[in-house]
Design a protein around this nucleic acid. Structure first.
Lengths: 238, 238, 238, 238
DNA sequence: GATGAATGAGGCTTCATTCAT
DNA sequence: TATGAATGAAGCCTCATTCAT
């Protein structure tokens, strides 16, 4: 170990270290940007602040992202768009029933988005969509459209398999989205004010919503007396 | 021109005119500010624009509101409350069933808030709550808490009368609020981007949500075979 | 005078004073900008410096000119473009011969442009045309094309009246322009270095050039001994 | 991989390679800088771009030139002079008439300077002379003075040999220089904007100018009665 | 010597706020 | 009171220059 210096290894280390640092920069910046954007909004977040939180100088930020808007796009891509490839893949090989799929999706959303800082982006976009139309377009193309499509396909799958009653799948999409978006919005606005009247247990809320949702979507069981609802939807949330 | 002019009269006229309009000024400014804040957000709305839309000069705005933030507060104060006194009164003398009451409430909300500029305030508050904690507190006290309470009382009424299944009324509140808030937010953000994937028919959406909601809240009908849900919740939305 | 206060007059004075100030601003800024642009070039001139020289703050500059480029355009319009309307008018009613017209033009150019700070703009544009393509286009449209056209029409007039030999008028244009442009460029670059080898007497130079020029352009006099040129064209210019 | 590598040899190779290229570096950088300065001007040329075109990194540039300004000086130094030694030598043994010599000189200038990248330096110097007084001095000493002198000697030769009319040789110098400088400047500024009104055929232009020039300089042919030139064009300028 | 990631001063532009009239 | 010209702090972004590797 001491004397037998391996030059190749050293060189490799040096290179690796530099590259590791370089490669890490965008991620660190995106992480810092996510936090600040969510905390203070897009317009109110200063580029320099993002840089400082990432531990670099203002100039460095612009070395990796040509503008503040590009930085924001990167944040969206990293935290939201990315999920869809996986979700779409899941859709194609999901073994269970469609209600199960829906449940899985909402749980998955909660785990990866809803319960993380990423949910702040959803709120952010709704707040700032009016200003920054270009960002809004980007967000729609990268997040809303894919999300919409995925949900629509799920609903259609349910209908096709006779699990859901016949309906306009596109219109039902919003019924599915609404609880998740509401949750994201609430927790990032009034949810932070700790007060009984504005406190909401997200997981409980989601469970309730899912239950109600399925109740509305599902085809009536051919079933005996006492329909599916017998199990007490709201009760299920405890 | 010289002698026939009565300076005192002119001065009096001018004074009168000013005073006549004086009281109207803040209102006009608040009205203009509401529109612009809702349209473009707080940060993106320029003081000069507000003044122009109100038909006064920029300087005048600062005569009535010491800062842009104070103007914002005034906008929120001016446009809230008021509805609740009426709704609360209605609660005490509503003759019908609780599901009917719920339906009435949502319709009423849509008519007076959801479909009007006032819904913009909801969106506005959610967007800016983070930046104006003091305002958020105010909003919670004046709007959220009363609304919460009203809904909670309605649900409790339903439970007490055996119309709704037994449940935690406080928790169910969010299930009722969510669709309305979602609607207010969506229409004021992505709803404006005219695109199939972001288009949503508000009334249809509300009807669907109400249907689903009642389905979840209502106690199972003692009923015969083939549960109440047989009527096709989503179908009802057409 | 004492008691008989004329309110109208006072009001008029006040208004006049404010307006005089306001109306004067653009001119003062343009004047300051001309000086600085010529001294230091477009890119190297800071907006704040222009403002300071005009005795206002940075913000005020942008109150009158939406960008540095617009300021430059205003400088060009004020100092160069403006001349053409007059020159074009002169062209239509010039009573003398075409050589006389040419002479008049060059004198006029020297008086209003060549010998003033405005000649710096010519040099400036040549220097910075490569960068700022938009400015170059503007300059071409506002200055070069009109100038070109005017000279071309003069030459054509000379040809048509049999004063100049038949030739391609467009090509001859550069022969006329070259001395003026050269002069503008030289005086604003090496001309400032006071040194025998780079010193050039502008008026003498112009006279010489005009003489040579006419010699080249004019049709041979059918004439007897001692042609028209005998009188030393430029001599007249002193 | 481990033992068969001769580290000393590798190191030596690396060193050799570096040293071999070491001397070439400045030249490559200067070459690249010339091109870019001419294309885009001094201020608009970014150091990194120069480095990239020279095939090295930004850091390397500053290894050879302590600042961008020093690089600029080097460009001017490298690309000037040199021509004059040759032209001066030619002067001493030119066999033909002086008008022929003048024609030869202008052609030679066009071939070696005017039509090459080197003409860009002329334009560059004129553009930046104001910003780099020190460089301007240098340029005058190295280029302007020698050029001036050469032309002056030619004119004097013509006068002494009776080919040119008597005149102030120093003053006539600018008449000779102007077309060349104008050409260099025009082609590097508005000449690049492809537009009828700014298009100029350099060779045609030069031929025309030379013609006009000689017409003005030459002594009247012993010739028949009263030629057009009889009046002594240049003389007229006093 | 060579690299290129990092720096930070400096420029343009915006806009809430002030204040003389 | 009302005006709107003027201000200047603050933000985004560029790029010459430095320095650890």
């Amino acid at each position: 170990m001491p004397k037998s210096i391996n030059f190749c290894e050293i060189a490799a280390n040096v290179r690796a270290k530099r590259e590791r640092r370089k490669d890490a920069r965008p991620g660190e910046l995106i992480e810092a940007a996510l936090e600040l954007f969510v905390e203070k909004g897009f317009a109110a977040t200063r580029a320099e602040e993002v840089a400082k939180r990432a531990g670099v100088s203002k100039g460095t930020l612009f070395l990796y992202f040509s503008s503040k808007e590009e930085l924001f796009k990167a944040v969206v891509r990293e935290n939201l768009s990315g999920q869809f490839t996986e979700w779409n893949a899941m859709f194609d090989c999901f073994p269970g029933t469609t209600p199960e799929m829906l449940k899985f999706c909402m749980h998955s959303w909660w785990e990866r988005i809803g319960s993380t800082k990423a949910s702040g982006i959803t709120k952010l976009m709704m707040s700032e969509a009016g200003n920054f139309p270009e960002l809004a377009e980007f967000y729609k193309a990268e997040v809303i459209r894919p999300g919409n499509l995925l949900i629509q396909r799920m609903i259609q799958r349910g209908i096709d398999r006779g699990e859901f009653r016949p309906m306009d799948a596109q219109k039902a999409v919003y019924t599915v989205m609404a609880p998740m978006l509401f949750l994201a919005l609430w927790t990032h606005s009034f949810g932070t004010l700790d007060d009984a009247s504005s406190h909401l247990n997200p997981e409980e809320f989601l469970a309730t919503q899912l239950d109600t949702l399925l109740n509305g979507l599902c085809a009536p069981k051919p079933a005996p007396a006492g329909g599916i609802n017998a199990q007490g939807i709201m009760a299920a949330s405890h």
